[in-house]
Structure formats: structure tokens, C-alpha cells
Design a protein around this nucleic acid. Structure first.
Lengths: 340, 340
DNA sequence: CTGAAAGCGCTTACAG
DNA sequence: CTGAAAGCGCTTACAG
């Protein structure tokens, strides 16, 4: 122990000349609770803590209380733009409520020999592929779990956004704009077994709308969820097949790649080929041309999920809740004849 | 305690019929260390742990050992694209070394009544504005601190990327392409007192290069670090002032906004006005036109910083290290006459 | 090779 | 209003 060890409750108590219990109580007390103590005891304790630069050790507090005041945000690709946006929105809510938030990338996850940091609750984003992981990560079998996104985990609280309905609406929009031959561009699922809600259902919904209007549909998939992959795949397609007059993309990144491919092929999005993305990243408003997109209600989704989490932390026994949110389509030049 | 409590070392030991010490040792042991134990003891312990689904409690392990095997990644705007990219690169390195990583947004940071999660080390990105915070966040006064980015914290390990030199090179590139009147677009520092290395020095370096070549320079600043803010500010400027023939931006987000403003004003980036961004986000290759940018060596920077951190964790007494990395300019259509 | 005991820094009943 | 004591689930000397 050569390092200058930091002050503990014990040393603060000794310095103040009161017991450890009193010290701890006073340092944790809210203003109302504080009135129970003699003013000079409070002063002594506070001065002592300030003088020693005391900072409580969360490790010890969490160990003994069994509550970490920390939640985990579990996501499949935590650092991609859409997920980073979710993380930002969620962190604001969580912090304001006095909790900490750990972001865990499910792709990096593995239960190692060292075990996990216990958390009071798990917020799982797009958890379909990670249901197993999310359930496994819980420190207790009754640790609250709230899922948010296009899919949910049965038997737990869920905030769902209805991507199939939104994709159908986007398809109808393209049809209304005159599209005859529609290309649906999405990514091959990374590793997951059952991704119906995330990949298959949205496609099916768009396909149903397109079939109903008797337009043609082709599905094209990339191996990576990147603009680069989308560009490559689409350029290849354009060189070999008759060109579509509308492209509906599963993510904004794919839409950016598609836009670049079209331009390189001499086609302007919104003129020869309509183009719609999905996720609602703000950047799309500044592209050339600006791209239409399905604007995921990230803030509302996160607010609802955090509300559910707080309710469950307070009342663990409540039946699971479910909330469904719709996804509005933001129409820009890439898909509207009228905006030209 | 109505919740089904999870298994502890004690319960695993009881189940296996051996002591807690032996149980803990065997579960933590590497293959070599394992040979010290009787094979059947090992088997009993492992079977017992597996049967009970034992997961060690990191809280307790960290509390008693004084090592959390966790590092903090401290950033000013943790969820913006550039910082998210740093987080992704760093997490891969950290995980592979058997550590966990917490991302902490310095903007959200406040030493609350609850204290902080102790970490073994702090990786501070663009820490100039957050030197105080970073130093304050250390659980111990000797907690390792490594800074990375355009600035560093004196007296600690640093991986620096030389943005002033890169900005000067970018300015010379614009001049070589024929620019006479250059606009430098950056953001007002958010909240910070001294941000020389992050904001002032890069500008000064560009200004010196421009002055040396006897070209004119105007500096324009946004209040927000967003494409939207850049677009507004630049459109406003273009309506009132003679137009520049080159724009050098402090970030890629600003460059995207600038590109959109130029187009809306009837000017094409790379034709009437040259445009260069800064950060090296991959998306810029897919913009229309593709944007030139200073490609921050994120992977190399993170690898070097993590290497430094590991060395310091092993040998706390070493003198502080410093590594400087250069930032290459990636030239695309937005700033090259030759590429048209 | 295995085990009993002390202790990390807190919180939580329980006394006085 | 204040304090002594037990204990959270581990790791770490130290014995045997």
C-alpha cells in the first residue's frame, strides 16, 4: 500500500469525532432527513468530509446495499450512429434520475471468469438477437429488463416502434410518387438466428403493400451494415439489371451508400430513382440531395422505456407493460416529385 | 430478500464440499496454476460452479483487491460520431486485454453524493477542457491517466495527434489548388476556459500558412458543433459577404453543413468553392460531392494509448511518455481540381 | 494441497 | 439523536 490511500468513512468519522454510522447517515441525508441531527454534528461531519476530500466508495455501498444505482444499456452495435443517438438520449434521462449508465456492446459481451458488474436494471435496444444475452446478464433472475426498439422480449416491459407499419407506409409513399419497380435494400443479419422483427417483418410489410398495388419488388442484401457495402452491392446490381425507379433502405447508412451509387451511375436520387432511408439521422437533411427517411422517435422511445424502468424498480410486482410508437416518414427531395 | 439470491463462493464451496479459499483459487486459476490442485478437487469445484450457475460478484472482488480491471474512457461529447468511433476502437483493445471499459461523458459528469465507480485507469480524449475533471475523477492520486487527441495533460502519458500541422498542410493544399480567399469555419468552444490546442492552435497554424502565401483569411464560428448550425451561419455569411473560394472546417459535421449551404447558394463544393473537413469520418467519401478531410488516425492513436496504459499499470514508476502522430489529408472531389 | 480468519468500505438493523 | 456490531462476497496473507 504505497499509494496514498483515500479517505474512508472511518477516517472522516474519526476526524469529526463521531461514529461511522452517524457520519454515513449525515453524508447521505437529504435536507429533510438532516433536521434529525444536531446542527453542530452535521457541521462537524461535513467539514471533516470536505477537509479530507472524502468521496464515498460506490463499490462498497453497492455491495452491501445490493443496489448499484446503475443500469446497463445493452446494444448490438453500440457505437454506430443510430445506437449512439439512443445512448445519448438515454444517458440524459438516466443521469437526471440520479442513476449511472453503463453501455455494453452485446457483440463484445462474454461472461468471463471475472463476472459482471451488477446493475439494477437492463435496457436492451433491438434485443431480438440478444434476448439470451440480456437474460443471462441479469445479476438476479428478477432484475428488471426493459426492451426498446423494433422488437421486444416476451414477458418483460417493452417499448416498441412499429417498423413494419412504417415500412409499409414508406412503400405506399413511393408508389404514390409513381414508383413501379421498387428495390428493397437491407443487410444480412450479422450473426443472429431469429431476427424476424428487425429484418424480416419490415421487409414483409413493405412487400405486402407493394404487392397490393401490383408493383414489382426486388430484395438486395449487403454483408455489412455500411454505406460502402451498400454502394458496392448496388453498383454491381445496376450494371447487370434493369434499374429500379425507387429504393427503400433498411438503414440510413445503406441509403447514403445507395445515393452515392446512384450518382456514380449517373442517376439522381429523387429524379430518376426515388430513395428512402430508415432511422432518421439528422445528417440526411444535409445530403445532396436531402434524403427522405423514417424518423425513429428516439427521444420518446427512450423516455417511455426509462419511465417503465423506474416504475419497475419501484414496484417489481407489476404486470409487464407494453407501449407501441409509430415512426413518421420525413419526406425530402430524394423521394418527392413535388419538392423539386 | 424475497428475490432468489444468486450463488456465492460460499454456496459453491459448500456444494463442492471444499473450502471457500480453494473454490475461489480454482475458479480464478489459469491452466498452469490449476496443476497445483488435485484433479478431483478441481472437478468438484467446477461442477459445483456450473451446477449452481455461479458468476463471481465483481463488486466484492474489486472492493477487496483494490483493482477493478476496468478503465474509464472520458470524453467531452461521448456520443458524437467522432467520439463514438474512438470508443469503438478503444473498446476492442480494452476487451481483448481482459478489461472492461466505462464510457463517461464529461459533460454529464458531476461528483455526486454517491461517489464514483473506481477504475484502474482513465483514458481522456480531447481532455484539454476536462483536465480538472479527469484529475478529480481519479480514485487515487496515482491512478494512471493517459490522454489522447489534439491535446494532453502535462505530467501524464499522452498520445498526441498534431492537428496544427495538419491544418497548415490542409491550408497549403487549398492554396496549391488556387484558393485566394479562405474561410475557416469552427465552433465556439462549448464551455471551456482554455482550449488552445483544440481550437486556437489549429486555426493559428492554418492562418500562418495562409499569411505566408499572402492569401486572405476569414474566421467564422458556429455556436453549436452541428451541420445545421454550420449551414445557418454560412448561408448568412454568403448572403452578406463576398464569397470565399475555399472553406476549411474544424470538423466533418461542420463541413457537411457547409456543403449543404454552398449547394443551396448555387455553389458546388470543389467547383466554385473548395471544401475540406476534419476528423476523417468514412461517410464523407459518399457525400455528393465526396468531401476531403483530415483523417485522424483513430486506430493507431487508441492502440498507442492503450499500450501506454498497460505499461503504466504494470510499472507505475515509469516517467511519463509522449507519442506524436500525424494526420494525413485525404483529398477528394471537394478540394481537387484534378479529380473533376 | 487445503483451510480458517481477517478485512476491503460501506449499510442496516438494533440498542441506548 | 447517536453508536456498536454484524455482514455484503469476495481476496489475501498465513497456517497446517
Amino acid at each position: 500500500m504505497s499509494s496514498p490511500s483515500r479517505p474512508t468513512l472511518k477516517s472522516v468519522a474519526a476526524h469529526a469525532g463521531v461514529s461511522v454510522t452517524t457520519t454515513a447517515d449525515i453524508l447521505r441525508a437529504t435536507p429533510e432527513q438532516l433536521s434529525r441531527y444536531h446542527a453542530d454534528t452535521v457541521a462537524k461531519v461535513r467539514d471533516s468530509a470536505a477537509a479530507l476530500h472524502y468521496q464515498p466508495n460506490r463499490l462498497a455501498a453497492a455491495l452491501v446495499s445490493g443496489r448499484s444505482r446503475t443500469v446497463m444499456l445493452l446494444m448490438e452495435r453500440a457505437y454506430e450512429p443510430y445506437f449512439a443517438r439512443v445512448a445519448r438520449a438515454m444517458e440524459t434521462l438516466v443521469r437526471d434520475a440520479g442513476y449511472e449508465m453503463f453501455v455494453v456492446d452485446a457483440a463484445h459481451f462474454q461472461t468471463g471468469r471475472r463476472g459482471l458488474w451488477p446493475v439494477d436494471g437492463i435496457l436492451a435496444v433491438e434485443g431480438e438477437a440478444w434476448q439470451e444475452v440480456a437474460l443471462q446478464l441479469r445479476p438476479q433472475v428478477d432484475t428488471p429488463l426493459v426492451s426498446l426498439g423494433t422488437c421486444g422480449i416476451a414477458g418483460y416491459d417493452q417499448v416498441r416502434i412499429d417498423l413494419p407499419a412504417a415500412m409499409a407506409a414508406a412503400a405506399r409513399h413511393l408508389i404514390a410518387q409513381g414508383a413501379q419497380n421498387i428495390l428493397y435494400l437491407d443487410q444480412q443479419p450479422l450473426s443472429a438466428p431469429n431476427l424476424a422483427a428487425t429484418y424480416l417483418d419490415p421487409f414483409k410489410a413493405a412487400a405486402a403493400a407493394i404487392k397490393k398495388a401490383r408493383r414489382s419488388l426486388v430484395r438486395l442484401a449487403t454483408t455489412q451494415p455500411t454505406a460502402a457495402a451498400a454502394k458496392t452491392v448496388l453498383l454491381d446490381y445496376l450494371q447487370q439489371q434493369p434499374r429500379p425507379d425507387a429504393i427503400l433502405c433498411r438503414t440510413d447508412d445503406l441509403a447514403l451508400g445507395a445515393s452515392s451509387a446512384l450518382l456514380e451511375h449517373g442517376l439522381t436520387p429523387g429524379r430518376e430513382v426515388l430513395l428512402v432511408g430508415c432511422n432518421g439521422m439528422e445528417e440526411l437533411a444535409f445530403y445532396n440531395p436531402p434524403l427522405s427517411t423514417l424518423a425513429f422517435p428516439v427521444e420518446a422511445m427512450c423516455a417511455a422505456a426509462w419511465e417503465m424502468m423506474q416504475q419497475r424498480l419501484d414496484q417489481p410486482g407489476q404486470p409487464p407493460q407494453r407501449l407501441d410508437l409509430s415512426i413518421p416518414l420525413v419526406v425530402r427531395m430524394s423521394s418527392s416529385q413535388a419538392l423539386k
